[in-house]
Design a binder for these strands. Structure first.
Lengths: 345, 345
DNA sequence: CTGAAAGCGCTAACAA
DNA sequence: TTGTTAGCGCTTTCAG
């Protein structure tokens, strides 16, 4: 990489000279101080405009020891789930004078580490990590240098806050919904190491047992991806009798399952009912119309930022765990089991 | 916003003191200089590790007058189209020592201006704007302060580069495909002011005329959204005879059209064939299976960054317009018109 | 209300 | 090879 410097931009000194005042006065005016004489204020404003002056945020932050920057490490830019989270963060940031800068680690540990490092070197005032795959230890270490809020994953250390939805409860709702429709053979395709996946699995198991279907519990391996859902579903469909309802770990996996079901010549919901998780825009597509659990993403984003602010601005030291309630969205992928199928159990 | 400074982090001076050397030596070691004695190098490395020292990127950039930061303003984080563009940018950036920071303007002029301003004040070495809705004038002005590359939209000024796909040619391919299947009444739902939309429209018209269907040209208003496609499609379906094929401005609009068609009790492709644009992940869903035009997104991202580098590193002053060829992806949403329908023309 | 001086953390000549 | 000296552009006391 070459070291060619850019054409130098006007500095505060240039403005001061042109307006015939001191640097300090220009600084005051640029920051909107109120006790500056109208005449000089105008002279400064005019000079700045003529020069196209723009304060250098880095020089400013260097002396203030504060950047007013919040770094957001997004686990996967391809997942529409995160778009709303970021929107919520941005929303709240704009209201409170913070700038949001987004980064991504492409679902890889190494990538996420690099992304964090960039933000750390930039001296962001705080950072938000969405569903990171990073080790707890790495996060804990970074949290000693800058306030960190996790979204979608629990912050297992007192120095790390988190904003999540109640995955356990959401999974229970999925099961209860299926049971209320008359299903008994309800299987789960799990989400592997994905953020929240273990809780969804435990919630599924707990609800099954609580409602007297402990013997019907069946979990197959999967991931938070279409392929994972597809694979897991094929395993389930190969059984006799096969499940009449399937709860997939997230919407993406549910779509994979949907494909597997149709490839097998079966229909949703006639032969198999299907439930997803996340209520992404995909689930709402008319052709998919997936029953799923909604997470209040926008609000989660807003809460992530306000939680971060409590540490950045108010110096809170106690950990904070925000857990929101998911809500069931019933669409066309679930229905009562067909009479002959239900009998088989 | 309060002005509470963070707990101060170790500086280069702290490391120098602890290692018993000068700041400059620490600086050299941190940057991996080769002519440093092994003993001192190790002392510095050790001190830095013990202190948890991390160079302050802002202080460094202030003196170097270079941030090694590339700002990417993404028009809409919800559109999966941009995820691959960003991935391509990041890919190429990682190879060449640049850090990528993403921003978004939420499809609004004001938001995009703020996003640009943040990047400008941060003194990013260059910026990439994806499908901005910003005025040409604003972009032109900014391009005098920092190299800018537009993606998905043409850079109408010599100081602004661009990377696009050949929208005109892509639209022609869509039309040719429909005609080759036997369609004659082929309508277009346009994309309004969306980046590239006017070219797609012109391409559609040109191909229709060139192939002797000038009299059949029909364009209805739309946008790059599901709602736009839905609305436009309803207008088309209300006609007698209605079109046997519809070319929507992008995939999102095509999905809106798809919904409109099915709501009207018609089927795709039996009653109406449908073509989209962009080949987003949505188009590939088994349940959608949309014939569409693919843009080489990853490559476009990579090219955007390398085009930017030519200005940042090599000081190129001539404008550069990269135009890539789209490719037709045929799926299940297009088929020959049913015999009785075709006759009606 | 305004200006002068000091310094944020770092790198870049220039000496030694 | 290593240390010293100046700033980068800005804000912040502190005088006036």
């Amino acid at each position: 990489v070459s070291t060619k410097p850019q054409l130098s931009k006007p500095t505060i000194t240039d403005v001061a000279r042109r307006a015939g005042v001191s640097k300090s006065l220009v600084s005051l005016v640029m920051r909107g101080a109120d006790h500056v004489s109208p005449g000089r204020r105008q002279a400064v404003t005019k000079a700045a405009a003529e020069l196209g002056y723009r304060p250098n945020a880095m020089a400013r932050s260097l002396v203030q020891r504060r950047t007013h920057l919040v770094g957001v490490m997004v686990s996967d830019l391809h997942n529409p789930f995160f778009a709303d989270i970021v929107a919520g963060i941005q929303d709240e940031a704009a209201r409170t004078g913070y700038k949001v800068l987004v980064n991504t680690g492409n679902r890889e540990v190494r990538g996420e580490e690099d992304a964090m490092e960039t933000l750390l070197q930039l001296r962001a005032d705080g950072m938000i990590l969405t569903s990171p795959v990073l080790d707890d230890e790495v996060i804990l270490k970074a949290s000693r240098e800058v306030p960190i809020v996790l979204v979608g994953r629990d912050g297992r250390a007192p120095s790390v806050d988190s904003v999540t939805n109640d995955d356990h409860a959401g999974a229970e709702m999925a099961v209860e919904h299926c049971i209320s429709l008359g299903h008994r053979r309800i299987a789960h395709i799990d989400g592997g190491h994905g953020a929240g996946a273990p809780d969804r699995r435990r919630g599924y198991e707990a609800a099954m047992k609580r409602l007297g279907l402990g013997a019907q519990v069946q979990v197959v391996d999967g991931t938070y991806t279409e392929e994972g859902g597809h694979r897991g579903c094929l395993v389930l469909l190969a059984q006799h009798p096969r499940p009449t309802a399937i709860f997939a770990a997230n919407d993406l996996a549910a779509i994979g399952a949907l494909n597997a079901i149709e490839e097998s010549g079966l229909k949703v919901p006639d032969d198999v009912s299907l439930v997803g998780y996340d209520n992404t825009s995909l689930a709402a597509l008319r052709h998919i119309s997936l029953t799923t659990l909604h997470q209040p993403r926008l609000e989660m984003g807003r809460l992530a930022l306000s939680t971060l602010r409590e540490r950045m601005d108010d110096g809170r030291g106690q950990p904070r765990r925000v857990v929101l309630a998911p809500t069931l969205v019933v669409r066309a992928s679930t229905a009562p089991p067909s009479p002959d199928r239900a009998r088989e159990s």
